Amino acid sequence: MPPEPEKRAVILAAVWSVIADRGIAALSFRHVAAAAGVSVGLVQHYFGSKDNLVRASAATMIDGSALRFAEPPADPRAELRRLIAHSVPATPGSRRGVGVWYAYIAASVADPELAALLRAAKRGQERSAAELIAAAAPGIEAGSAARRLVALADGLTARVVTGDLEPAEAVAAIDAALADLG
């Protein structure tokens, strides 16, 4: 068994696995405990309710994504492309992660606290994109350009997830939009 501070992380990773394999509706303390290799009581101890488990796992996913973009960029344009295109699922692992993210979006319809977490994450992505646009393409209205790019990536990601586009097609559309920035 991992040390005490790592148990929570193991449980949260198990939540993602359960959601990816079974869907968020099938999420239960029992399924998470089995996936994590811990007792149901330990999962209940850390999280108390299924809603808390979902919110904590979403917050952890968001924090992990934010850490990937925490370093100051050497090349703002390249970092902007990475920030905007990262949601397009190009590998089986990223496809699972995007599937979990969409499960959180669906669950947020009935969970205002989860919805607030997801809104804050998207606002953070837009702010980061606006900062990168301001650095990479001075003279562009960065806030509205950032919103358009994030919305474009979100829409393209949904089309990739449903099989309407290949990941390379989605990334090509993002690259074209980035080229239009000048």
Score class of each variant (00 low, 15 high):
26 A>S: 12
115 A>N: 01
17 S>F: 05
132 L>Y: 00
119 R>F: 03
31 H>L: 11
180 D>R: 10
36 A>C: 01
11 I>L: 07
7 K>V: 15
107 A>D: 05
64 G>Y: 15
103 A>Y: 06
38 V>N: 04
127 R>G: 02
167 P>G: 10
63 D>L: 13
88 V>F: 02
41 G>M: 10
82 R>Y: 02
37 G>S: 06
154 D>K: 03
170 A>L: 02
60 T>F: 11
95 R>I: 10
172 A>R: 00
83 L>E: 05
80 L>S: 11
80 L>W: 01
21 D>T: 10
4 E>A: 10
53 L>K: 11
109 V>P: 00
168 A>V: 10
77 R>W: 07
20 A>M: 07
30 R>E: 14
166 E>W: 13
40 V>I: 08
46 Y>G: 12
30 R>M: 12
153 A>T: 06
27 L>I: 13
169 E>P: 01
77 R>N: 10
60 T>K: 10
111 D>L: 10
148 R>I: 08
153 A>K: 02
68 R>Y: 08
35 A>V: 09
143 G>P: 00
126 E>T: 07
71 E>L: 09
3 P>I: 12
102 Y>M: 14
169 E>M: 12
28 S>T: 14
70 A>P: 00
73 P>I: 13
107 A>N: 06
89 P>M: 05
123 R>A: 03
102 Y>W: 11
108 S>A: 09
148 R>N: 05
76 P>E: 09
174 I>N: 00
7 K>E: 15
47 F>M: 08
140 I>Q: 04
99 G>Q: 11
148 R>G: 02
180 D>M: 09
63 D>T: 14
61 M>C: 12
22 R>A: 14
70 A>V: 08
128 S>V: 04
133 I>S: 00
31 H>W: 09
64 G>E: 15
149 L>E: 01
39 S>V: 04
11 I>R: 01
14 A>L: 04
39 S>I: 03
105 I>L: 10
160 V>T: 07
5 P>L: 14
135 A>C: 02
105 I>D: 05
156 L>F: 03
64 G>A: 15
37 G>M: 11
74 A>F: 11
89 P>A: 05
161 V>S: 04
108 S>V: 08
60 T>A: 14
5 P>H: 15
99 G>V: 14
124 G>A: 11
8 R>D: 03
109 V>S: 09
61 M>I: 13
86 H>G: 05
10 V>D: 15
159 R>V: 09
139 G>Y: 04
113 E>Y: 15
175 D>P: 00
159 R>L: 13
64 G>P: 01
123 R>D: 05
79 E>G: 02
97 G>P: 01
66 A>W: 11
176 A>K: 03
26 A>T: 06
141 E>P: 00
30 R>C: 12
68 R>F: 10
155 G>R: 14
101 W>M: 09
105 I>C: 06
130 A>C: 01
149 L>G: 05
25 A>R: 07
74 A>K: 08
56 A>C: 11
11 I>E: 03
153 A>S: 12
13 A>V: 12
147 R>S: 13
51 D>L: 14
19 I>V: 09
10 V>F: 10
61 M>A: 15
101 W>P: 01
143 G>K: 00
71 E>R: 10
121 A>S: 12
156 L>S: 02
167 P>M: 13
10 V>G: 13
65 S>A: 14
154 D>V: 13
155 G>Q: 07
115 A>W: 03
76 P>G: 09
75 D>K: 09
36 A>T: 07
96 R>M: 08
78 A>G: 11
63 D>A: 15
